[in-house]
Nucleic acid binder design. Structure first.
Lengths: 124, 124
DNA sequence: ATATTATAGTCCGATATGGGAATATGTCAA
DNA sequence: TTGACATATTCCCATATCGGACTATAATAT
């Protein structure tokens, strides 16, 4: 098996910096035609279209034909997926949990509970 | 150029589902030795170690030697990067912005302002 | 010193990029 | 119809995986 498809997941889709940049622009300006994005980003049209293609397949952006242009806008629902995932980690940096972390670290030793030590293959 | 390194970015690091799973476990249990993770995840030790390696290089986890075990814990600061990035998009789904989106879409037409139409190569 | 345990790292192979160039498709205009 | 414009798609290629099997390294026990 190789690396996962960029179109398999929002997480994979936003791993690419340029794709994130596109989303940022769409968020700020509301909706943009490909040509506008090409100008704003300064990347070749080919690249922009391909990135938009990935974002489209994942569902994080939606298109609307408008004459010969295609206007893209964000479909934030899928970004919410990412948000919902990181959100729970918030507490780990929000509060000064440094001390609690240290505590957990010490506790990890006794808790290590390795039921089946040195197991090379996963269980059925 | 090919795909970006998984170690280049937190975004790239968390693109992998198993890596996300590891972070979830570490968040809940506080800190865990590799062996424990191997058991909990059911993946071969080799794979777990490699994923931990990626997370380590990105800085989202930290290790502490404890005898012959290595106890990993989350270093949430780097996850905050992701959080800070998606956060601004929150408003796009929080409120029923459907109408506003539609408005922006219509507005996009006039606003399309393509200063240099059909530009295959990016500017210097 | 030697064996054992806990992890990390290497080698291999199949696969999915992402960029550039060129081309295809689709839409409107004359 | 023919042509120009806006986008999407295809080709080619260098590269970075991810998993599995195996090996190397480190720490502890005997």
């Amino acid at each position: 098996m190789a690396r996962a498809r960029t179109t398999s997941d929002v997480f994979n889709a936003i791993a690419e910096p340029r794709r994130r940049q596109i989303l940022e622009l769409l968020a700020v300006r509301g909706a943009l035609a490909v040509g506008t994005l090409v100008v704003l980003l300064g990347h070749p049209q080919s690249a922009v279209s391909k990135h938009l293609g990935v974002l489209r397949k994942v569902g994080v952006v939606a298109v609307v034909k408008q004459g010969k242009q295609r206007v893209y806008r964000i479909d934030a629902a899928h970004l919410k997926t990412v948000h919902d995932w990181v959100k729970p980690f918030e507490q780990l940096w929000d509060h000064h949990l440094a001390r609690i972390k240290a505590l957990a670290e010490r506790r990890a030793q006794e808790q290590t509970f390795v039921p089946n030590p040195q197991q090379q293959k996963g269980p059925s």
